[in-house]
Design a protein around this nucleic acid. Structure first.
Length: 288
DNA sequence: CTAGGATCCTGTCAGC
DNA sequence: TGCTGACAGGATCCTA
């Protein structure tokens, strides 16, 4: 669920609150949500910085350890300051950003000096992993991670698309070892903007289309980051805006049955690479 | 090596 | 109402 823009939003937002705070205590409510080392490995350490690698968030500590957090489909990070005045919540959008915490989906509670950080995750696919800071680059997910759209060259992407010439383009751009950051929403939005049918074989993608994919992936994600991600951020704002950000932002995602914003043709939903895939049959013609 | 499907887990919704 | 299957903003593992 949370894709690159959401994780970037979390990184920026949380940084303001948790850097320089000491970890007082950790409560693990679900064993599989906290891995890599026992909680004693980070208890007492102080947070010194936050980084992001694709969809993975890194919290660096002052004891040579780092936490790698991957929210996968349904993860959320919610920070409650002690005064409870301004809750900062980001990740998988849901009504329960407003809940009392901890709730049924809370998996890990990290008590800081001036507040509490909750890791919520309905489906338990996400995790917090303790790593040696110096060994981050050896972590398989990070090691294999491709460049993000701002850093990848058309030549590199072209070469990888040819390598996976028989896979649908939607599947290849979702692959984090090919290009990093896109998830199901931004993949659909990127292909719509690029006027490419999601089932097109990657080997059929032209040089110009490859360039369009990179450019549009940047545009669509930058736009989302600028608006704070397709997620709710602030307790007070969340109250009024609920989850309608994605609806306003998306041109095709979850718009099946509605007219295409460009040509008014009805948006279709199909399955590609095992994922729900939304596209305009007229703007994104299938090449035979 | 690539391609595609199953899998991890909880919850919701449509259909009978 | 209760059951069933499909589906879900991700990534890995297994098989062919």
């Amino acid at each position: 669920m949370p894709e690159l823009p959401e994780v970037e939003t979390i990184k920026r937002g949380l940084s303001k609150f948790i850097i320089k705070q000491r970890i007082k205590n950790i409560e693990i409510l679900c064993e599989k949500s906290f891995v890599g080392a026992p909680k004693s490995a980070i208890s007492g350490a102080t947070i010194i910085g936050l980084r992001r690698f694709g969809k993975a968030l890194i919290i660096d500590l002052d004891n040579e350890k780092s936490l790698m957090i991957h929210l996968r489909m349904t993860g959320q990070l919610i920070y409650d300051p002690q005064d409870r005045k301004e809750r900062y919540a980001a990740g998988h959008p849901s009504e329960n950003f407003l809940d009392q915490l901890p709730n049924k989906q809370t998996r890990v509670i990290i008590e800081l000096k001036n507040g509490t950080l909750y890791f919520n995750d309905q489906r338990k696919f996400g995790f917090i992993k303790v790593l040696e800071t110096a060994k981050l680059a050896e972590e398989p997910f990070i090691k294999k991670l491709a460049p993000e759209p701002w850093n990848i060259t058309p030549e590199e992407l072209c070469r990888k698309l040819q390598k996976h010439q028989n896979s649908p383009i939607k599947a290849t751009i979702l692959d984090q070892t090919i290009i990093a950051g896109l998830g199901n929403i931004y993949a659909d939005e990127t292909l719509f903007m690029s006027k490419i049918h999601p089932s097109t074989k990657s080997g059929q993608i032209t040089k110009a289309q490859t360039e369009a994919i990179i450019k549009n992936a940047r545009t669509v994600m930058e736009k989302s980051i600028d608006s704070g991600g397709s997620t709710l951020k602030d307790y007070k704002k969340a109250d009024g805006t609920k989850g309608d950000y994605l609806d306003k932002f998306a041109q095709v995602f979850n718009k099946q049955g509605q007219p295409c914003p460009v040509c008014k043709t009805i948006i279709k939903k199909i399955k590609v690479a095992g994922r729900g895939t939304h596209f305009c049959p007229r703007c994104q013609k299938e090449k035979k």
